[in-house]
Write a protein that binds this DNA or RNA. Structure first.
Lengths: 213, 213
DNA sequence: CGTTAGATTGATCCCTATCAATTTTGGTGG
DNA sequence: CCACCAAAATTGATAGGGATCAATCTAACG
């Protein structure tokens, strides 16, 4: 696996800039070294939906050259470990471990996407925001290590209100109001708009799974 | 690849019965030979979301033994080609083609899931129903063959109104009303509730991507 | 200290959920 | 073949949650 490291190059991306355009065929792939990346899908009339938030150690790009109309954009400053897809093909043919690792990553991504479909499809605004905060809390804590069930009580929300809305299928005003309600209920506390402290994890978990209307 | 055929067994499932329970670890996988399968995720308080509709040739089950709280259920009568996961591991270690095929399938599923997140997150009821009809039309026509962009003008909707609602994130009354509106606009025509004929494909495509309010 | 993008708050409207009542469909036995 | 029944679908009336429109307020930055 050190062989792929030989073919790889580091690349730094500034916050807000696009990593992969939706049209571009993109003949290379990458692993996120540091920073947060969002994957965006757009309708023909301009509305945008964030379909995934990616953290360090996650894979970017298609293993095959099939287009998926997906745009990858740096949410924060991002450092990537890039390599050509041709190298991926060659090495995975020799070492089955790489191919397997890729399958594991894709399976996880699929599971995360389906989990989020449940959030988008049925849940109320309150449940959506609570689910989002739990998602960020869980991912921010355990450094990409699997099996971490607990999460940090204090963490930084990498997304803006607009981005939260695009990920949750809500308007920014609604996101703002739900955050306010959670603060009023002493479930969370915010320090400077972006930093969040979870005061009542049990209630937050409950709110993420039950509609209270 | 004939080797996996030797280890596989055929299995018939009646419409409506569960293939894989959410809790069950499931030490086997399967390929759909005929029929339609739905994948369901549920919240702790009982609400259910259909996260995927699967057609013949698609893969069922997790390649690894990580639980995903997913239930697979036969929508129509289903015929499966089942094999133990252990066999999958062994053969994929010898023949990299199988592992690659699995990765292709998973990548497609991921792309489909993200496409549907766009539908669930941002679209109106009218757009959702139009998107659903196009999805079924496209899959019903080309027998699982890739690259088929066109679709059948007449096809059978395999899902009940309740299931359509669970897939679209809508109530059955809303689904019913949108279908009625599409019929009134001469975009579609229904024969006996389940069979649908698309009268105006261009308008249906337009409605699936633009909000008309 | 001024400028500007982002976030919050308020008021109102509309789409979809909800509740309730038929109507239609599909399956079964007489 | 038809009457009957249960389940599914449709239709109608109402209400509520989130969208929308509009006006501050806040914070980051030169």
């Amino acid at each position: 696996l050190a062989e792929i490291n030989r073919l790889s190059t580091r690349r730094r991306i500034t916050a807000g800039s696009t990593i992969v355009h939706e049209a571009e065929p993109s003949d290379w792939c990458a692993i996120i070294v540091s920073g947060i990346v969002k994957l965006v899908k757009a309708t023909t009339d301009g509305r945008e939906q964030i379909v995934a938030i990616q953290f360090p150690s996650e894979f970017i790009g298609q293993p095959f050259d099939e287009p998926s109309r997906l745009r990858a954009e740096a949410v924060t400053a991002v450092e990537l470990c890039c390599f050509p897809r041709a190298a991926l093909d060659q090495i995975s043919a020799q070492y089955p471990g790489l191919s397997r690792a890729l399958l594991v990553d894709t399976t996880h991504a699929l599971d995360a996407a389906r989990e989020w479909m449940l959030v988008l499809g049925g849940k109320t605004a309150e449940e959506k925001v609570a689910s989002f905060l739990l998602l960020i809390a869980e991912r921010s804590g355990g450094e990409g290590c699997a099996g971490e069930k607990d999460f940090d009580r204090i963490f930084e929300v990498p997304l803006s209100r607009t981005e939260m809305g695009q990920f949750l299928g809500l308007r920014i005003e609604t996101v703002s109001r739900q955050m306010k309600a959670l603060k009023a209920d002493k479930v969370i506390q915010t320090i400077g708009g972006r930093r969040v402290r979870i005061l009542n994890p049990e209630k937050l978990r409950w709110l993420a799974e039950h509609e209270t209307s």
